[in-house]
Amino acid sequence: MIQIFSDPSAVAEYVSEALIAKIRSKPEAVLGLATGGTMEPIYARFIDQARQSGLDVSRLTSFNLDEYVGLSADHPKSYSVYMREHLFRHLAFDASRLHLLNGLARDSVAHCQAYAAKLQGYGGIDLQLLGVGGNGHIGFNEPGTAFDRPCHVVKLAEQTRIDNRRFFAAGAVVPESAMTLGLVEIMAAREILLVATGESKAEIVAEWYRRDVTEEIPFTILKRHPQTTMILDEAAASLLPDEVSRQCVV
């Protein structure tokens, strides 16, 4: 299902309300969380709404999608710091229930296996938030990633490193590899919300619509998921056929 909203603010409102509804219906829910610029207004709106409504988040469990290899949990560009700054420190989460990959793990392959096992031990993800990269990656599952691959270490595509350079200081080196939940864990989630906003995502969203399911565009696999909603703003949806846009505008 595709839903199209006027702008990122309207998208954030919708996704925040969806998160709150999930938490109210299942206070012990397991959430799969994403990072990046797309998620920032969503988390900001969620924090505001959670505070206003007195939402109890203390029984939630979360698993983050990915982390750069080589960055410590205190590195300013790590996703651990991102999550603390944009979400965790603002609400009364139980820190013991917040799971993040360790970018400094001595054996990153074994660490990925243990992370996947821990997630499985919690029964998998109830609601997974996803963004999408300009090349169609979800998490850091780059084009060509096998659909049956679980949590793993990945060498980042050059386009991904170029796209993410804006988050790093001028002259800083963007890490070459990362750890990520695989498409196995993502597709096992009971519900998925994929969010894409901005003109820069319009071409890959249109490719998703035009193409069959293919490992060349990893997020096309979501066409096989029975409970996926693609949430777009008008800019990200601008290259979809007019009849699709007319049917999906909220």
Rank of each mutant, 00 (worst) to 15 (best):
His111Gln: 08
Gly124Cys: 08
Pro150Lys: 08
Ala188Thr: 06
Val195Gln: 03
Asp126Asn: 12
His225Trp: 00
Leu55Ser: 07
Tyr115Arg: 03
Thr145Ile: 11
Pro241Gln: 12
Arg246Gly: 01
Gly131Thr: 01
Met83Trp: 08
Ala196Cys: 06
Ala117Gly: 08
Val30Arg: 05
Asp242Val: 12
Leu222Val: 03
Val154Thr: 13
Tyr122Pro: 05
Leu130Gln: 01
Asp107Gly: 01
Ser58Gln: 11
Leu130Lys: 01
Ala169Lys: 14
Gly32Glu: 03
Ala12Cys: 08
Gln49Met: 14
Thr145Val: 11
Ala34His: 02
Val30Lys: 02
Thr160Arg: 05
Arg97Pro: 08
Ser9Gln: 14
Asn164Asp: 12
Gln227Leu: 07
Tyr68Met: 13
Phe5Pro: 02
His137Tyr: 01
Asp66Thr: 07
Arg59Gln: 15
Ala34Val: 02
Gln247Asn: 13
Glu142Leu: 05
Leu239Asn: 06
Thr214Val: 01
Leu91Ile: 00
Met1Asp: 13
Asn164Ala: 09
His75Glu: 10
Tyr68Lys: 10
Glu234Gln: 15
Ala178Met: 03
Leu232Met: 05
Ala189Ile: 10
Val30Ile: 09
Arg84Phe: 05
Ala170His: 09
His86Glu: 09
His90Arg: 00
Met1Thr: 12
Ala202Gln: 07
Gly124Ser: 07
Arg246His: 10
Val213Thr: 13
Asp48Ala: 15
Ile20Arg: 06
Ser58Thr: 07
Val173Tyr: 04
Ser58Asp: 09
Gly198Asp: 01
Ala29Arg: 04
Asp242Ser: 14
Val11Leu: 09
Ser245Arg: 14
His99Thr: 00
Glu215Leu: 05
Ser80Ala: 14
Asp7Ala: 14
Val205Met: 06
Gln120Gly: 15
Leu65Ala: 05
Arg59Asn: 13
Ile20Tyr: 00
Pro175Asp: 06
Glu85Gln: 15
Glu17Tyr: 00
Ala146Tyr: 02
Arg165Ser: 15
Cys151Asp: 13
Phe88Ala: 05
Ala73Ser: 13
Ser177Leu: 09
Glu207Asp: 14
Val15Trp: 05
Phe88Ser: 00
Asn64Pro: 03
Ser78Val: 08
Asp163Pro: 02
Asp94Ala: 14
Asp212Arg: 13
Ile186Asn: 03
Asp163Thr: 03
Val69Asp: 11
Ala21Trp: 01
Val132Pro: 04
Glu203Lys: 14
Ile125Ser: 03
Lys22Ala: 15
Leu183Lys: 08
Pro143Asn: 03
Arg24Trp: 05
Asp242Thr: 11
Asp242Lys: 13
Lys155Asn: 15
Val132Phe: 08
Thr38Met: 11
Gln52Cys: 09
Met1Gly: 12
Leu239Phe: 10
Gln3Ile: 10
Pro241Gly: 11
Gln49His: 07
Ala34Asn: 07
Ala172Lys: 08
Gly139Trp: 02
Thr145Leu: 04
Val57Phe: 04
Ser25Asp: 14
Met179Pro: 06
Arg106Phe: 12
Val81Thr: 14
Ser6Ala: 15
Ala21Ile: 05
Cys151Glu: 00
Gly131Arg: 08
His90Met: 04
Thr228Arg: 01
His225Met: 02
Ile42Ser: 06
Asp7Asn: 15
Val11Lys: 09
Ile231Gln: 05
Leu31Lys: 03
Arg166Trp: 10
